[in-house]
Write a protein that binds this DNA or RNA. Structure first.
Lengths: 134, 134
DNA sequence: GATTAAATGCAACTCACTTGCAATTAGCTT
DNA sequence: AAGCTAATTGCAAGTGAGTTGCATTTAATC
């Protein structure tokens, strides 16, 4: 997993190591502010700007992925060892759950045929009410 | 269509009328800034804050819908008379095309069964390269 | 240990969007 | 047609996520 860093000519600094640890410990997508806060709680305080720069870089290297729920901020999750999936977010409490499914293999072909675009990715999120908020 | 306004106790002001006209003339989802700019070009200049407030209100009344491509801004499109659909955006030029399809009826049931959430909506966007940018 | 490119932290900035408030206006009511 | 009132508008100022410039620090290599 750290090979990707070396391959990209990136250093394994202390802040970066701490950020990666946060992601390894977090199953669900988290925001930059949440990463920042968790670092502080773990007495590994890192400047927020460093968090942002690392998120951009880790995404660039394909080590993390971004997910957006149109909350006015992005969320990120590790990619390592996890299969492609989607999410559902509760409109009440904001809680997010993984959906280990993706129904879009075939649809992608339909889209490519119809639009003459070459599809390179997609975003799919569900919204609703969780058992507690319902 | 304007009945929704009256039903909501809303007035049909000049700025509002102009904003609705912009949407009726625009097939694809546009940003607040684009609405604002088009109003200016049509010599119907309206303050940007008025645009934002109207977008919020029209969305509230279900007259327009928001779509996001994680560009750091939201887009909006009229709902009136149009069927539920999704979009694809070009990573090169940002161009958006409509996809008049939605494969998620059945999947929604699967999601509800698996997560015990009550699904109330979903967001699905494709990204890729259009014929010109490819 | 010396070298150096990458990375960090701080301060200042940008940009989408929101809020407070006084002035205006649409849509009644009489 | 004039008056009333709540809704709406524009302006100014604020918020919050994310970015940029730059001097200082640090990981990795020589």
């Amino acid at each position: 997993m750290l090979d990707s860093l070396k391959a990209g000519g990136k250093k394994l600094t202390k802040p970066r190591r701490a950020i990666l640890k946060i992601f390894q410990e977090s199953a669900l997508p988290i925001t930059a502010a949440e990463v920042h806060e968790r670092l502080k709680r773990a007495h590994r305080t890192v400047d927020l700007v460093t968090v942002y720069r690392n998120l951009a870089m880790l995404k660039e290297l394909g080590m993390i992925e971004s997910v957006g729920f149109h909350e006015g901020q992005m969320r990120y999750e590790v990619r390592h060892g996890r299969q492609h999936h989607h999410h559902i977010q509760c409109r009440g409490c904001g809680r997010i759950a993984d959906l280990m499914l993706c129904p879009l293999k075939k649809l992608t072909e339909v889209v490519e045929r119809r639009t003459r675009f070459v599809v390179d990715s997609h975003a799919l999120e569900f919204f609703g009410w969780c058992p507690e908020c319902r």
